[in-house]
């Protein structure tokens, strides 16, 4: 038991670097695929799709950290949340960058897309919502904003992930199964947060380690 306790409090110094390197790995593969022509007949479309999926997946993973901590009492998920969130933002920026490249950085066409096509509006909005979160992800941001305000600001991620999922749903031509799977996972994560945090279960959650 003491060994288990010791393990759960171990600082795991490799954890965040491992998540960061692992999270950047798909970008390296994407770059190599682009150079070797492995992205197929329509590489820009493939790269757009892959970076979009990576953005959403990493965002969902970052939102899985708290439910996982609540369910298991482990503390390490909270420590990789920021890295996952920043990786998601990075892929979102890359996704948008590839979209800009796709349209030859033609401002008129891009503005028209953002304003007139809900599919693009949603994607653009989701990315915009992530910008203040990325800007306040520094270690001293919490202190400077105050914990309360920082937490409230970072609730924007909930809006961003749902709008992002809607963007994915609208982007699919016919088979809506994959975006609906994302939506189902998100819904499940929110149900877990809600169920575990319900009054009456607080005590059990508060002493998370005792659960294990």
């Amino acid at each position: 038991m003491t060994r288990a306790a010791a393990r759960s409090t171990r600082p795991l110094p490799w954890l965040v670097p491992a998540v960061t390197v692992g999270g950047l790995f798909p970008a390296v593969i994407l770059g190599l695929d682009a150079l070797t022509g492995a992205l197929g007949a329509n590489p820009i479309q493939r790269a757009t799709l892959q970076t979009g999926l990576l953005t959403l997946t990493l965002l969902v993973l970052s939102l899985a950290c708290t439910p996982l901590r609540l369910l298991t009492g482990w503390t390490w998920p909270a420590r990789i949340r920021k890295a996952l969130g920043l990786l998601a933002f990075g892929y979102g920026v890359l996704h948008f960058g590839i979209y800009l490249l796709d349209h030859g950085f033609t401002l008129s066409q891009i503005t028209e897309d953002v304003i007139e096509r809900p599919f693009v509006t949603a994607g653009f909005t989701a990315l915009l919502l992530l910008v203040p979160l990325a800007l306040t992800s520094r270690r001293d941001s919490v202190r400077r904003l105050g914990f309360e305000r920082w937490t409230r600001l970072h609730r924007l991620v909930y809006a961003a992930v749902w709008v992002g999922t809607l963007h994915y749903y609208w982007g699919v031509k016919k088979d809506h199964t994959p975006p609906l799977i994302y939506a189902a996972i998100l819904a499940a994560l929110f149900v877990i947060r809600w169920a575990v945090r319900r009054p009456g279960r607080q005590g059990r959650v508060g002493s998370g380690r005792a659960v294990g």
Partner: peptide, 19 residues
């Protein structure tokens, strides 16, 4: 006449990068 979700003004010829 745009598709409701994207413009039809341009296209990518497979094998080319630009539109």
């Amino acid at each position: 006449v745009p598709h409701p979700r994207w413009s039809q003004a341009t296209e990518r010829r497979i094998g080319e990068l630009g539109r």
